[in-house]
Design a protein around this nucleic acid. Structure first.
Lengths: 202, 202
DNA sequence: ACACTAAGCGGACTGCGGTCCAGTTTTGTT
DNA sequence: AACAAAACTGGACCGCAGTCCGCTTAGTGT
């Protein structure tokens, strides 16, 4: 006999989890949420979570990979609600409303969601502050805002500049070039397109 | 007598540096560049830099603050050249060309600059990869691309979606809300404006 | 019920980022 | 030239993220 075929995996369920493992995951998540609630995300240590959940430190890392992964897992519930809302929920966020309407609602909902969980997001992504405070970034932003003004664009130029710079973010560009296998030329074309849209006469 | 007034500081020269300090800074930068060249940015440790420059570890931190700061300093030269180029250099990047032209050139130049120094940027911002690979991010991106398609937008929808998500990046939103003192309502308005520009009939 | 195996466990251990402070060097002042 | 204040130095020290490996336990086939 040939070995039995694996059932096709749906929706990224990479591995079934043993019962005790699942129990520990739940204990760990509860402990982490509790500790964050109590002392703030920035003071959360992996060891403290392990201790509070009465398991070894190794278990925490086995379950969540690293600190970032733990934060992701803690955020997961809120994340799921958000996803449900914009994929299957009521309009205007969910299906039923016209697409532009949904796009608008998406941003507003995202910003609310972000503010709700900001401390965790911030802590999950250290060195974030420095990225935006660094002089080179500030100079670039001013430069872009200036050019936008000269080009006759009206609106919140500082915000538009920030958005445009976002699409030149080193980490994002790297991700697009490597993981997504995009060519530099595509990114250049994308930039030109973005400039065209933003500077288009309204 | 009243105490003498501080001279107005021009162009962010926050503090004059003692001679030995400046010498050490130079030694450290040289050592860091050398080590990066030789072993790659990801294997650079603060202690190794200190040892290679024959100074104490404390000195490295005093000069550059932290690991991120050291990378920034290493990038500083290339950064300055870039800045010179787009602020004072020849057109189309520098002054002289029409603003839209300069905006276009800016992105192209930035992307080139990025690719040149990508390994350092990537290393300076750890956990960046995870940010873009994480399932929630991917789902949101697909969702946006889908809506853009439904809204009749043509072009590289994946890239446009990535750009739009960039302006909802937690770290950026946090920075705008706190350091820049923007109100959530302003960010919401910015998002709506962005949607309008991107979905505008071409 | 029993044995077998793969998954899970835990905590000692490592390495690095970042801090601290007693001692040293530089620089301005008299 | 001598002094005093301020700035700088270096390396011992600390805390935490992440690894490793010998031991335990849950699921599975008989």
């Amino acid at each position: 006999m040939t070995p039995p075929l694996e059932p096709i995996e749906l929706l990224a369920s990479p591995a079934p989890e043993r019962a005790d493992a699942a129990r520990n995951r739940a204990k760990l998540l509860a402990a982490a949420a509790e500790l964050i609630q109590e002392h703030g995300a920035e003071h959360l240590t992996m060891e403290a979570v392990a201790t509070a959940a009465c398991v070894g430190k190794g278990t925490v890392f086995r379950r969540f990979g690293d600190r970032f992964g733990l934060f992701l897992a803690v955020l997961d519930q809120a994340e799921c609600e958000m996803q449900q809302a914009f994929m299957f929920g009521p309009p205007p966020l969910g299906p039923g409303a016209p697409p532009v309407e949904r796009l608008r609602a998406f941003g507003v909902a995202s910003l609310r969601h972000l503010r709700q969980n900001m401390d965790i997001y911030v802590e999950a992504d250290k060195s974030a502050a420095q990225r935006y405070d660094a002089p080179p970034r500030v100079v670039r932003e001013r430069h872009l805002a200036l050019l936008l003004g000269e080009a006759g664009v009206s609106g919140d130029l500082e915000l538009l500049a920030a958005t445009m710079l976002g699409s030149l973010d080193p980490a994002q560009v790297h991700h697009l070039l490597t993981v997504r296998r995009r060519a530099l030329e595509e990114l250049e074309a994308g930039w030109l397109d973005l400039v065209a849209r933003i500077t288009a006469p309204s």
